[in-house]
């Protein structure tokens, strides 16, 4: 299914371009936090995720424990479990166990969004196409950013440190504007995070993020139970 692979690759191009600039910021952040270019690249190659990697680098540079690292990655990336469950119901017969194990690596927010918007069932070769191109963008951006940290003027790399956070704001603000529930959850999470930063400073950064996020999401789930049917999409049968 060469054509499915090529189709996946073409769908991966806009994702890769977006990843390029964000992972550029990650590369700079990683080197600034004291990691080598190689470490930054290996993190991007093995993780393929933005928020988890940024949190991971913060824990490494703060000398956090491995337990803190594992729990932080679990909480930050738990959304992928939901996406994986959703995507697993959209796969076609070409997905053997081995192919599932391979394609699972590439379940990111953007790849999930594009793949789940496809009509009909997903073929493994399509997933490989979209993942491989996105992966190249993510890895290349990281290496360029990590290396450029030494070439570009400090004023520029300092400013680039905000790129990843700017993207996070771009993810949370539009839905927070539309939904009072999302707005409440984000404000509560940010509020608890501020308390940990300035008042209860004995809690390390990774745990502070976990506790803030879990508490805010739990409160949100109690106060505003989400309409879980809303993410279901009509599936167009394909022969």
């Amino acid at each position: 299914m060469r054509s499915q692979f090529l189709k996946g690759m073409s769908h991966g191009i806009p994702i890769a371009l977006g990843y390029l600039s964000v992972s550029f910021g990650f590369g700079i952040l990683a080197v600034k936090s004291g990691l080598s270019i190689l470490s930054a690249a290996v993190i991007s190659i093995t993780n393929l995720t933005s928020a988890g990697q940024a949190a991971g680098v913060a824990i490494i540079s703060a000398g956090g424990s491995l337990t803190e690292m594992a729990l932080t990655q679990l909480v930050i990336n738990i959304r992928y479990a939901l996406m994986a469950i959703s995507l697993s119901q959209k796969t076609d017969g070409s997905f053997t166990l081995g192919k599932r194990l391979a394609a699972a690596y590439g379940i990111t927010d953007e790849i999930f969004a594009v793949a789940s918007a496809q009509p009909g069932r997903l073929r493994a070769s399509y997933m490989y196409g979209i993942i491989s191109v996105s992966f190249l963008g993510w890895t290349a951006g990281t290496i360029i950013g990590a290396s450029a940290g030494q070439l570009l003027p400090a004023e520029l790399t300092d400013a680039m440190g905000i790129v990843l956070y700017g993207m996070f704001l771009a993810i949370i603000i539009p839905p927070a504007r539309k939904s009072r529930a999302v707005l409440s959850v984000t404000v509560i999470a940010a509020g608890i995070s501020l308390i940990f930063r300035y008042l209860i400073t004995v809690v390390s950064g990774g745990f502070a993020v976990i506790i803030s996020a879990a508490a805010a999401a739990a409160l949100g789930a109690l106060l505003f139970p989400a309409d879980t049917g809303e993410t279901d999409k009509e599936e167009v049968p394909q022969s």
Binding site: I76, L169, I172, V182, T186, I192, S212, A213, A216
Partner: peptide
Amino acid sequence: SFLYYIPYAVLAAMT
């Protein structure tokens, strides 16, 4: 619902 809100909560707390 918890899983639906967690990405927003994580990103807000990280930012």
